[in-house]
Amino acid sequence: MTALELVCPAGTPAALKAAVSSGADAVYLGFRDATNARNFPGLNFSRDELQQGIDHAHDNGCKIFLAINTFPTAGDSTAWHQAVDDGASLGVDAVILADIGMLDYASRKHPDLRRHLSVQASASNPEAIRFYQDAFDVKRVVLPRVLSVAEIAALNKEIDVETEVFVFGGLCVMAEGRCALSSYATGQSPNTNGVCSPACAVRYDEDENGRMVSKLGDFTINAFEADEAAGYPTLCKGRFVANGEASYLFEDPVSLNAASILPDLAKAGVTGLKIEGRQRGKAYIAKVVTSFRRAVDSMDDGAVVETDLTEITEGQRKTAGAYQKTWR
């Protein structure tokens, strides 16, 4: 069994340094535009910042993966192609791509640049994964968060490419890269704009009963009593009414923590453990990465894995999510 690689997020140079010093094996990040799926104001890297980030990471034995994982706009793919070209010339260790046209471009233009398949490509089965491997020589596939551990183990037996799975952070309940809920309500979507439920479309109002109401565009996503913690109105995490009953229709307010099943994931044959959260600050990154570094190292020693991250989970419950089939 090869050592598990800890792949950590960075939305800023400070977060990158925190991830590196906390024991990340690789840091993934994106440019400051719509070419990556965390296109939030004030986040991400300029070309200069990326160059410095690469130097810092490489000096400390850490790799840099550049996420260019949105779908280029028809009629104007320039920014996306430029991002791949710049990543190659600056010396990133891999690019993380989702779009078939982009994979085609990168494999023809930069055959030696290592290519990972983004979770946004939603490759959930052996035929799809083999396609990306055969057609574009993809070396690693980030698996969609729709698979159980048993399904991942079965999948890894059928493919000959590295796999990477999410182990901590926000939990997409829909198949990634195949969700237009956000653009239906706000006009902006992960695939085209690199944002889901964008902050510019969020509003908080107080209703006549004194409840705090969170809105996304024109739609109410949730309402909170005075004693309830008000969460960010990510569309699929909201409360809606079906058959006359209000509920968290898609997902309870939980986020992913797969720390307790790291040995199962290792046995299932995964290579990379990915932490979500490029929008997070450096303190959060340091804490989560440190905790998972310890978990992975103690696992190598055959010790019991423990992580205590309750203090940074914002009161949310944690779940191993789709990795356990009961979640469905």
Binding site: L249, F250, A322
Partner: peptide, 19 residues
């Protein structure tokens, strides 16, 4: 419009059932 697809069945969930 088909907007999203998931591993999870929301019909079952809304009826208190497992997929």
């Amino acid at each position: 419009l088909p907007l999203a697809i998931s591993a999870r069945c929301y019909h079952a969930r809304a009826h208190g059932l497992h997929k």
